[in-house]
Structures are given as structure tokens and as C-alpha cells.
Nucleic acid binder design. Sequence first.
DNA 1: CTAGGGTTAG
Length: 756
Amino acid sequence: MASLPWVAVNTTLHKLESDLRKLPPSSISLDKRSQARTPEKRQLESQPLDFGEALSILKEGNFIDSALYVPLLQECIDRKSLWGTKSFHAHVLKTGTHQDLFLSTFLVNVYAKCGAIAHARKLFESLPRRNIVTWTALMTGYVQNSQPEQAVEVFIQLLEAGVFPTNYTVGAMLNACCSLYYLKLGRQVHGYIIKYKIDSDTSVGNSLCSFYSKCGILDSAVKIFRNTPEKNVISWTTIISACSESGRAETGLSFFLGMLLEGMTPNEFTLTSVLSLCCQVQEFALGKQIQSLCVKFGWEAQLPVRNSIMYLYLKCGEIDKARSLFEGMGTASLITWNAMIAGHAQVMDLLKDDVSSHRSGIEALKIFQKLNQSDMKPDLFSYSSVLSVCSRLAALEQGELVHAQTIKSGFLADVVVGSALVNMYSKCGSIEKASKAFVEMTRRTMISWTSMITAYSQHGLSDDALQLFEDMRFTGVRPNEITFVGVLSACSQTGRIEEAKRYFKMMTKEYRIKPVMDHYACMVDMYVRLGLLEDAFDFIKGMPYEPNEVIWSMLIAGCRSHGKMELAFQAADILLELKPRSSETYFLLLNMYISAERWQDVSRIRRLMKQEKLGGLRDWSWVNIKEKVYYFGSDDRSHPQSTQMYELLESLLEKAKGMGYIPYEILQIPDDSVGEKAGNLIVHHSERLAIVFGLINTVEGTPVRVVKNIGMCRDCHSAVKFFSELTQREIIVRDSRRLHRFREGKCSCGDFGAFL
DNA sequence: CTAGGGTTAG
């Protein structure tokens, strides 16, 4: 963006002003050529066409029927076939049809759409004649090929050439401005639009509306929309998707309602936008109603519509339905593939603690692999989704392969892909590679910074996290509420009470960010770690909203660790009034009462769990070894190497005891699938088995990475610390709450990470 | 001029 000098911009606008002055007001508004397609043109398009056949005719140097020109070019766009376009171009030159301005303009457009903007430019330069549509096509081409500065440049040139801009040209200019984030320039263009009274033109209004929304000013977009006198379907679609981009899904849905009430018929664009809104706010029932609307209006066969519906099914967890839609799709686009990968990634979140969540991730990797084998190339969306899948799976090997692929394909340069990579390495336990990826980024957004700050914080490196936060502020990037979760949790890890208070104040006063539950949770966590349990209690009581389950469990777990049982019991009573929803919370209380031998309370908890219909938890862990996944449950003996595993485990535990390991009582997690078998006490939780399996089956000295579906208990946490020292191995366990990196007898979580 | 897919927390 630096290459566009302000002088040029001002010249443009100055020139624009004088040129627009010469213009009779009526001539700007419409360019007939691009209006609704003429009947004979539509007829051309419906001609049957075999793309391959047509191309081979061209290749052999033979002529093709001119009736096939338009459909062939359209096909080149759809397939992004540069080779096809070139062949066609050659054909046009040979037949002398390049004199046809319509065809030449179309070719400029096709080259641009195939990503060959340089070719488009060359053709443009060589044309003996050009009209405003040709100019506009070139501008649009630059915008679409991420060279908005060039688009502005072309705009200057066309004005200098004495050509009159149309509404389309103004639209392309506004698009260039929003890609440049040139709010100022766009506003000036808006000024001229008003001055020359073309603001009542529907398409100009639509462009402005989309411009403001893309610059993040939804209010202005809404204003423009309301002031557009003759709203068409596009106007409504624009405002609806503007709401979607600004994350204001409810507003978007109400606009949709308004549209229907005004008797406007939605088109396929509208419906796909609305479906995406439904996904955003998880209004799946509404989404299914929209699906019926798609059928009613006859849009259900459109690929984008089918993509949206498939994505909707994934988001509400109906994977089988989504999969059958996917498999039934004759032609899938890259977006179809990406939606499948991203959808599976989100299903992982949906199924959080269940082992099927993991399977969904594996499925996503498989889909990505199939995409690689297909004739389509993954793009930045595919890469960022698949990287997030790798990070959720802690699949380092696969993640590294994807990393290599992003380097090869050049997508690593994208900020989102870069941030996803930082996150992947961090979640896979390698802070070194995460920070390397961060340092190598050429551009950073707030999310990139936040990812890295959070990464340091999760790895227990609070100095680095806080330093980076200061760097971020110094760079002038505005943190959001998630950044502060990272900052505050970094403070809490190392008990920096004063700094935590300062940052909390900074968040609310300087950045006007309303603290949410997670911020309070960080503060409570800090008091608890420091053993300041009364302070924690007071802090909780002073919160502006009702503390949730997580906050109370933290306090209770802390009281347990510090032996302040009276306070723990008091807090437990309050917690139970809240009717906790998670089984984990009940197990925390249950085990606490069992070890305190408060049998009345034990039966009270059991009764409550039955009332709430909360079943057992499954304790699962898995370990990735050479792209294969091995699952383990508590006391699992199903693996052929079991004997060897248990021998190693017992010997490690014995040696640990010699070094001072004192076992806590191991948390009992009754598993529903097994039924309540009396006297079947758990001896080993799943992560221990996964760890020893990893130790046996990986090379000496390399890290072992394990993922666990629920939180680690105190006993396992303490034992694994000794394992890391005894084996001189780095052991990484990612549980449902946080990341534990055990090295030389210490854990990155600072020892207060195990709640149960 | 309008659409469908992506990254950050506990």
C-alpha cells in the first residue's frame, strides 16, 4: 500500500472532479452492455459444449464455431484455465476477430480471472481500440489479483485518456479502496458520488454499502442502504452479508425478514448469505427452514447453495448427512472441499471430550489428503483449516508436512496461514518452532500477536508473553479480549499480582474492553496459586456477574491443594446451587468428599448427578506416532505391548517413589460404558499408558506428545513430572484445560494446572 | 455491484 503516493490519489480525485464535471449526469449511470443478458447471448450459452473437445480443436489449429466463443470463455473462467484462454486468444488472433471489442474485453476479463493479470495488461496494451468496459475490466482484474494500487493507477490513466467512468468503474474504484483499506480515498469517492448526484443509482449505492462494510463501518453501510431509494435484491444481499462480516448475525437475519416482508424474492446469493448467518448464530432449525426456501425458489441445485447447506449440516453435527451431500456432489468446487475440512474441524469442538472428536479430525486430514490428490490445489483457506485440525490433534508430523506444502505453494506468506502455523506448533508442544514461525512472518495482525502471546503463556513463559504484549502495543496493534486472556493468564502463572491488576485496569480503562468470565478466571487462578484463598473468595464475591462453574471449581481445587477444606466445602455448596452442567465438576466434588470421608455429601452428589442425568466420563488419551494414532483408556490392557508397558510404568512409579513421589489418591472416574462395577477401582489413568507407550515406541531423547480428553488429576500430574526426570524425556500432555510440558521434573503449567 | 470456506482463549 506504500507505493500509492498521496499526490497521485489527490491528482486522481482532482482529475475525477474535472472529468465528472464534463459529464452529463445521465450518462454515468448505466452501461447497457453489462445489463441483463440479451436473449441471443443466453442462447449461445446454452449450447452444449465439451470443453476438452473444443480445446483440442483449437490445439490442432482448426476453427471453431463462433457461437461457442462465449461459453468457451466462460468455461475458461470456471476452470481457471490459462492454457485454454491462451489457445482461445491465439484462435481469435488468427481469425481476425480480435478487432471485436466485445471479445477482446471479454479476454481481458478472462485472463484476469485466471490469475494472469500480466497477460490481461499486455493484451489491453495491444488493443487498437478500447472502451470504458475494457478499462473497467482491467481495473477489476487488478483488484481481483490483489493489486489494488494498480487499479487506482489504471483509473488515473483512463481519466487522463478522457474516458468517462461508469457506475461500474466507480464500483471497481471503491473495491480497490477497500482492498487497500483506503477509507479516506473511498470517502472522497463517496463525496464525488454525492456531488454528481449518482448516489441514488442502485448499483452505486450497493458498491458504497459494500465498501463501508468491508472497511468495518457497518453503521455507514446501513445508512447507505437505507438511503438507497430503489433497493434491488443485490442491495438487500449486500447489507445482509455486511452484517455477517461484522459478526452481527442477528441484525442480518432481521434484514432478511424485512426483505421478505417487503415482498422481495431472495436469490441464491441472498440465501447462501442467510445460511451462513444461521451457522454463525447456530440457528440450525432456522437454517433448515432456509433450506426449504432454497428448494421453493429453485436454487437448491446451485453449487454455492449446496456448499452452504452441507456446511450447515456439519456445523450442527449431522456429519453423515453432510458426507452424503458431499459424495453426491457431481462437481465440487474448492470451497466445497474447504467447507468439508473446516466443518470437520468445528465438529471437533462440538464433540470436545468425546473420542469421536478425534476421529472427526482424522477425517478432516483424510479429506485434505484427497484434495491434494484431486486436480484442485489447496488455497489459504484449506491450509489454515487443516493447520487448525493438526493443532487440535497435536499432530506434529502432519502439521510439518502441511508447513512444507505452504512454503512450496507460497501460501505461507498469508497472515492467517502464518498465525495458524504459530498456533499449530504451540499446540503441538513446540514453542521454539512456534516462535520461529512468528518471527518469520512478514505481516502480523492482532490475531498473530495474540496467538504468540497465548503460546508463550501456555508454555509457562510469562516473561516472553508480557514482553511480546508490550511489543505489540508499541507497534500500535490494538489487543482484543482474547489477547488479554493470554496476558492475564501469563501473570497468573507466575503470581505477578500487581501486574495482573495493572493489565486488568488497562483492559477496562484504556481499551474499554468489558471483562468476561475468562478474565476473572485468570485472576482467581492467580490468587489460588499464591494460596491467597480468602482473597480469591473476596474477588469472586465482588464480581459484577454470577461466577460460573469454572471459577468455583478453581477455588475449590485450590482449597483442596492448600488443605483449606472449610472454605472448599463452603464454595462447594454455592457451586451446587448453580447446578453445574459438567460431569468433571461433579467428579471433583465427589472425590473431595470421598477423601474427606463425608459420606452424606458423597451420596448427595451421587443423587444430584442422577437428577441431572449426568453420566460417567470417559477417560481417553491418545498418542501420535509416525502419523498413526493409538488410543488408551483407564487401565487399558488391550494393546499387544501391554505387558511391556505395565512393566515400564510400575518400574517408573517405584523409582519415582524413591525420589520422593508421594501418590495422591487416584481420581475415580466411573465409566458409563463399563457400568458401575463395584470394587473396580481405577489404578492408572489413560495418559500414563499413552505416555509409556510413547516412551517405548519412539527414539530415545525425543519428546512424547499425548492428548487427553479431560483434565489431568493431581496424582498423574505429579507422577509424570518424575517420569520426565527419570527418562530424560520431554513429555507433553495436552488435556482439556491446558498444555503441560514436562521437562526435567518440572511442568510448564507451574503445578497448579491439575484441578482434579 | 451481491454469495458459499479460514486463524486467536479458558
